[in-house]
Protein backbone atom coordinates (compact mmCIF):
# COMPACT_ATOMS: atom_id res chain seq x y z
CA UNK A 1 0.00 0.00 0.00
CA UNK A 2 2.67 2.42 1.16
CA UNK A 3 4.99 1.14 -1.50
CA UNK A 4 2.57 2.01 -4.28
CA UNK A 5 2.12 5.44 -2.78
CA UNK A 6 5.89 5.92 -2.63
CA UNK A 7 6.35 4.83 -6.20
CA UNK A 8 3.87 7.31 -7.55
CA UNK A 9 4.95 10.16 -5.35
CA UNK A 10 6.65 13.25 -6.67
CA UNK A 11 9.53 14.90 -4.86
CA UNK A 12 7.85 18.27 -4.59
CA UNK A 13 6.17 18.86 -1.27
CA UNK A 14 2.90 20.73 -1.18
CA UNK A 15 4.29 23.73 0.67
CA UNK A 16 6.71 24.31 -2.17
CA UNK A 17 3.83 24.17 -4.62
CA UNK A 18 1.91 26.81 -2.70
CA UNK A 19 4.96 28.80 -1.68
CA UNK A 20 4.34 28.18 2.00
CA UNK A 21 0.71 29.26 2.03
CA UNK A 22 -1.89 26.92 3.40
CA UNK A 23 -5.04 28.93 2.91
CA UNK A 24 -6.54 30.72 -0.06
CA UNK A 25 -6.90 34.45 0.52
CA UNK A 26 -10.38 34.64 -0.86
CA UNK A 27 -13.19 32.21 -0.53
CA UNK A 28 -14.55 32.67 -4.04
CA UNK A 29 -13.93 29.02 -4.78
CA UNK A 30 -15.82 26.02 -3.57
CA UNK A 31 -15.70 22.44 -4.80
CA UNK A 32 -17.98 22.98 -7.78
CA UNK A 33 -16.92 26.42 -8.94
CA UNK A 34 -16.34 26.22 -12.66
CA UNK A 35 -13.02 27.52 -13.92
CA UNK A 36 -12.29 28.70 -17.45
CA UNK A 37 -8.86 29.79 -18.55
CA UNK A 38 -8.52 33.13 -20.23
CA UNK A 39 -5.08 32.79 -21.75
CA UNK A 40 -2.49 30.26 -22.82
CA UNK A 41 0.30 29.29 -20.46
CA UNK A 42 3.55 31.16 -20.94
CA UNK A 43 6.97 29.59 -20.52
CA UNK A 44 8.52 29.94 -17.09
CA UNK A 45 5.16 29.55 -15.40
CA UNK A 46 4.74 27.21 -12.47
CA UNK A 47 3.87 23.86 -14.04
CA UNK A 48 0.63 23.50 -12.07
CA UNK A 49 -0.58 26.88 -13.29
CA UNK A 50 0.24 25.90 -16.84
CA UNK A 51 -1.60 22.61 -16.48
CA UNK A 52 -4.66 24.34 -15.02
CA UNK A 53 -4.69 26.80 -17.90
CA UNK A 54 -4.42 23.95 -20.39
CA UNK A 55 -7.10 21.77 -18.87
CA UNK A 56 -9.52 24.61 -18.25
CA UNK A 57 -9.97 25.54 -21.88
CA UNK A 58 -13.47 24.25 -21.30
CA UNK A 59 -15.12 24.84 -17.94
CA UNK A 60 -13.90 22.45 -15.29
CA UNK A 61 -14.88 22.32 -11.65
CA UNK A 62 -12.38 22.87 -8.85
CA UNK A 63 -12.74 19.33 -7.60
CA UNK A 64 -12.06 17.92 -11.07
CA UNK A 65 -8.93 20.02 -11.39
CA UNK A 66 -7.86 18.74 -8.00
CA UNK A 67 -8.34 15.18 -9.15
CA UNK A 68 -6.45 15.62 -12.41
CA UNK A 69 -3.57 17.45 -10.77
CA UNK A 70 -3.59 14.92 -7.93
CA UNK A 71 -3.45 17.75 -5.42
CA UNK A 72 -5.69 18.49 -2.43
CA UNK A 73 -8.61 20.82 -3.10
CA UNK A 74 -7.29 23.46 -0.70
CA UNK A 75 -3.96 23.57 -2.54
CA UNK A 76 -5.75 23.87 -5.87
CA UNK A 77 -7.76 26.75 -4.46
CA UNK A 78 -4.55 28.58 -3.59
CA UNK A 79 -3.20 28.01 -7.09
CA UNK A 80 -6.48 29.19 -8.60
CA UNK A 81 -6.40 32.27 -6.41
CA UNK A 82 -3.02 33.19 -7.91
CA UNK A 83 -4.38 32.76 -11.42
CA UNK A 84 -7.56 34.67 -10.63
CA UNK A 85 -5.58 37.57 -9.16
CA UNK A 86 -3.56 37.88 -12.35
CA UNK A 87 -6.70 37.60 -14.46
CA UNK A 88 -5.70 34.39 -16.21
CA UNK A 89 -8.88 32.52 -15.30
CA UNK A 90 -12.49 33.31 -14.60
CA UNK A 91 -14.60 31.52 -12.03
CA UNK A 92 -18.32 30.91 -12.24
CA UNK A 93 -20.58 29.42 -9.64
CA UNK A 94 -22.84 26.76 -11.07
CA UNK A 95 -25.85 27.77 -8.99
CA UNK A 96 -25.77 31.14 -10.69
CA UNK A 97 -26.56 29.31 -13.92
CA UNK A 98 -29.70 27.59 -12.71
CA UNK A 99 -31.43 30.61 -11.21
CA UNK A 100 -34.97 29.92 -10.12
CA UNK A 101 -34.52 26.19 -10.55
CA UNK A 102 -36.24 24.29 -7.79
CA UNK A 103 -35.24 21.04 -6.24
CA UNK A 104 -37.32 18.03 -7.28
CA UNK A 105 -40.25 17.05 -5.11
CA UNK A 106 -39.41 14.79 -2.15
CA UNK A 107 -41.89 12.26 -3.52
CA UNK A 108 -39.99 11.98 -6.75
CA UNK A 109 -36.71 11.59 -4.92
CA UNK A 110 -38.18 8.85 -2.79
CA UNK A 111 -39.39 7.01 -5.88
CA UNK A 112 -35.95 7.23 -7.40
CA UNK A 113 -34.44 5.90 -4.19
CA UNK A 114 -36.81 2.95 -4.10
CA UNK A 115 -36.16 2.19 -7.74
CA UNK A 116 -32.42 2.33 -7.14
CA UNK A 117 -32.71 -0.02 -4.19
CA UNK A 118 -34.77 -2.42 -6.31
CA UNK A 119 -32.03 -2.66 -8.90
Amino acid sequence: MIRGALDNEDPDRLYTVTGGRSRADESVFDMVTLIVSECEPVPGMQSEHARILRMCRGPLSVVEISSYLDLPVSVVKILLCDLLDTGRITARHPHAARTGGRLPEPETLKKVLVALQNL
Partner: peptide, 20 residues
Protein backbone atom coordinates in the same frame (compact mmCIF):
# COMPACT_ATOMS: atom_id res chain seq x y z
CA UNK B 1 6.27 12.14 4.36
CA UNK B 2 4.09 9.73 2.40
CA UNK B 3 1.65 9.54 5.30
CA UNK B 4 1.59 13.30 5.63
CA UNK B 5 0.91 13.66 1.95
CA UNK B 6 -1.96 11.26 2.27
CA UNK B 7 -3.33 13.21 5.24
CA UNK B 8 -2.96 16.47 3.35
CA UNK B 9 -5.18 14.99 0.69
CA UNK B 10 -7.74 13.92 3.26
CA UNK B 11 -8.04 17.01 5.45
CA UNK B 12 -9.31 20.45 4.63
CA UNK B 13 -7.50 23.73 4.89
CA UNK B 14 -8.07 24.09 8.64
CA UNK B 15 -5.63 21.24 9.26
CA UNK B 16 -3.61 21.68 6.10
CA UNK B 17 -1.45 24.48 7.49
CA UNK B 18 -0.37 22.38 10.45
CA UNK B 19 0.24 19.36 8.26
CA UNK B 20 2.38 21.42 5.90
Amino acid sequence: LADLREMENRHDENVLGDLL
